[in-house]
Each structure stands twice: as structure tokens, then as C-alpha cells.
């Protein structure tokens, strides 16, 4: 019994320490960039835009396909169930609840983890093995501001933009389904959507995607930098980066949704 409690306690302590180190890495990279008098913004801008190109722009075809499919599926399920209950007009509300609040940020994060999180972890791992990180330091270039910061910032911007693109595409494909299956006019669908979406949705959307970007890229950078000497460690840290970012993103999304609904239920006077 106590052994189990000890093990759980050990795991919790380890994860708290890991989270602290992630925040430390992110904080130090932002600090070293903002306080560095050497860092040329032109050099930085090049690295940030490359990161946005690889993470954001190149992921758009896959995101389009996924958004179109999931938007259509959610709308189809919603419209089928709502027909029985006589609430076809509420399909927009359902789309906002499922796609904007949950599915959009989560699926975007999973795609970014699969495409870019792995790429960043393995790239940094191989840079570590090839002594490129040491070489940067030897040249007086702080790896925190030159390697980590552009990936974090580029990653966060990309995730927010991709998630926005996802929900736009998903709601559009949802409309197409409603139009062809139930003949729902655009005005009705749009007003249903706009009535359902409030300021809190924008806030949740922004926080979830900002944090997903930060989590994915800080975990990937951190894991990549854990490589010591041998190339055989690179696939190991890449796998860890995928697992840890997925768990952390899911946990954060769940906690935020729980908090949001708890607030909602409290204001409704249900608790």
C-alpha cells in the first residue's frame, strides 16, 4: 500500500520538477533574447520565419484535410441527433462547443507534435551530438536565444494560426454538410454560430493554443538538449518528446475545460 503511495508521490514530484525545468528553459530563452545586446533581430527573424514556414505553412494541407473531415463528421453527427430532438438550429452551438473549444486546439496540437515536435527534438539532438551547440557558445552565440527562442516563438505563432485555420475550415465543412443534408441556409447556420460563440470562447481558444505551442516546443527543445554524446539517443529523446508533449497538452486542455465549466456551473447557481 505504502509502496504504491510512494511511487505515485515520486512520479508527481518528478513531473513537477520536469514542469519547473520547462518553465525555466522558456523563461531563460525569452530573457536572454530580450536582454542580449548582441542578438541581431535580423538574424532572429530569419530563424523564426523558417520555423513558422516549417511548422505552420507546410502543415496546412494536412490541417485542411483533417479540419474538413472532422468538421463534416461533427456536423453530420450533430444534425442527425438534433433532428430527433427538433433542434437543428442548434447545430452551430454544437460546432462551437466541440470544434472551437475542444477539437480544433487538440487536433492541431497533435498534428504539430507529430510533424514539428519530433523534428525539433531530433534536430536539436543531432546538433548536440555534432557539437553545434558547443560551437555556438564558443562563437559567443547564446543557444537559448539563437536556438530555443525562435522555435518557441515561431511554434506558438504557428499553432495559434493553424488552430484558427482549422476551426474556419471545420465550420465551413460543417456548413456544407448542413446545407446538403438538411438544406440549412447560411444565415441560420452563421447566426447559430455567432450566438454560441462568446468572448470566453476566444479567450479559451487563445490560451489553449498559446499554451499548446509553448508546451510542444519547450518539451521538444528540452528533450533534444538532453542528448549527450551518442546518436542512438536521438530517437529515444524524440519518442519522449512526443509522449510528454501529448500528455502535457491533454492535461492542460482538460484542466482548462474543467475550470471553464466549473466557473459556468457556479455562475448558473448549480453549485
Amino acid at each position: 500500500m505504502f509502496a504504491l503511495v510512494d511511487r505515485i508521490g515520486h512520479q508527481v514530484a518528478q513531473n513537477l520538477n520536469y514542469t519547473y525545468e520547462l518553465f525555466l528553459l522558456s523563461y531563460l530563452s525569452f530573457r536572454s533574447t530580450l536582454t542580449s545586446e548582441f542578438q541581431g533581430w535580423r538574424t532572429l527573424f530569419g530563424v523564426i520565419s523558417a520555423q513558422i514556414y516549417f511548422t505552420g505553412w507546410q502543415a496546412m494541407p494536412l490541417i485542411s484535410f483533417l479540419a474538413f473531415g472532422s468538421g463534416a463528421l461533427v456536423a453530420l453527427q450533430a444534425i442527425m441527433q438534433m433532428t430527433f430532438l427538433g433542434g437543428v438550429n442548434y447545430v452551430g452551438t454544437f460546432m462551437v462547443m466541440v470544434v472551437v473549444r475542444e477539437l480544433g486546439p487538440l487536433l492541431t496540437a497533435l498534428i504539430v507534435i507529430a510533424r514539428s515536435g519530433t523534428a525539433v527534438a531530433s534536430e536539436l539532438g543531432s546538433m548536440k551530438v555534432n557539437k553545434e551547440v558547443d560551437a555556438l557558445k564558443a562563437m559567443g552565440i547564446n543557444p537559448l536565444s539563437y536556438i530555443i527562442f525562435p522555435r518557441l516563438l515561431g511554434g506558438i505563432i504557428s499553432v495559434i494560426c493553424l488552430a484558427f485555420y482549422f476551426i474556419m475550415f471545420a465550420t465551413f465543412s460543417g456548413f456544407l454538410v448542413c446545407r446538403f443534408v438538411k438544406g440549412l441556409p447560411f444565415d441560420l447556420y452563421f447566426s447559430s454560430l455567432s450566438q454560441a460563440a462568446g468572448m470566453s470562447d476566444f479567450f479559451i481558444f487563445f490560451i489553449k493554443n498559446f499554451m499548446s505551442g509553448l508546451i510542444i516546443f519547450s518539451v521538444s527543445c528540452y528533450q533534444g538538449l538532453q542528448v549527450d554524446k551518442s546518436p542512438h539517443e536521438i530517437p529515444q529523446v524524440t519518442t519522449k518528446a512526443v509522449v510528454k508533449s501529448t500528455v502535457y497538452v491533454l492535461m492542460f486542455n482538460m484542466l482548462l475545460t474543467l475550470y471553464f465549466y466549473f466557473e459556468y456551473i457556479t455562475t448558473m447557481g448549480m453549485i
Partner: peptide
Amino acid sequence: FSTRGLLH
């Protein structure tokens, strides 16, 4: 550096 260290 003896061998590695160039940005690839």
C-alpha cells in the same frame, strides 16, 4: 574543434 562543430 577537432572534428565536429560546423552548423550543418
